[in-house]
């Protein structure tokens, strides 16, 4: 089964049909997908800027992460859930150009970077409470995260421009 077949099956499902034909639900899902970026993307940018030493320098990274993590996870949950609903509604049209597959690839890079960061620094209490200085590896992870999530947002906005069927 190819990726195109999976997207076609999603589009042909009752959920996909209902979403694609809905006058109100589809725009609301798209609106929530966009505005939930304030929680997901906005807060991750803040953490990334802290890792790079630009924002909120007086608070250790671990404390910022502990205080914002539930909100970030909630934001990402809303962004991903609405993103999957949009995939149901739009189906294989999303695969018509390289933009959406590239977006998925960059999300994968961002997610792997986040997993690596958690694995490397998630239990390093000295680092998290600020007893150790900012590690170069953590700053690199912040830069990768900032770049990749920004790229994801840009690619998301480009999707309708590169496929005239929207």
């Amino acid at each position: 089964m190819s990726l195109h077949d999976v997207f076609q099956a999603m589009y042909d499902s009752r959920l996909g049909t209902a979403l694609a034909e809905s006058l109100y639900v589809y725009p609301m899902v798209e609106g929530v997908h966009l505005l939930s970026l304030a929680f997901s993307f906005g807060l991750i940018v803040l953490v990334d800027l802290r890792l790079l030493g630009i924002a909120l320098p007086s608070i250790p990274v671990g404390i910022i992460l502990r205080q914002l993590r539930p909100w970030m996870i909630g934001g990402f949950a809303a962004t991903f859930a609405t993103g999957i609903l949009l995939m149901f509604a739009l189906g294989p049209k999303l695969l018509a150009t390289f933009i959406f597959p590239l977006k998925l690839f960059v999300i994968l890079i961002a997610a792997l970077n986040a997993i690596w960061f958690e694995w490397k620094f998630g239990r390093d209490q000295d680092y998290l409470i600020g007893a150790k200085g900012p590690a170069l590896q953590a700053r690199i992870a912040g830069a990768i995260s900032l770049t990749s999530w920004s790229f994801v947002v840009v690619l998301g906005r480009l999707i309708p421009y590169f496929d005239g069927s929207f």
Binding site: L34, A38, F39, G42, L46, I59, I63, Q67, L68
Partner: peptide, 22 residues
């Protein structure tokens, strides 16, 4: 929109007693 919403959310969350409580 994100530059308006995210900082506003952080202030509102802090007023509500959560978020960046330091």
């Amino acid at each position: 929109i994100i530059l308006i919403l995210t900082p506003t959310l952080l202030v509102a969350m802090r007023i509500a007693g959560t978020g960046l409580v330091d």
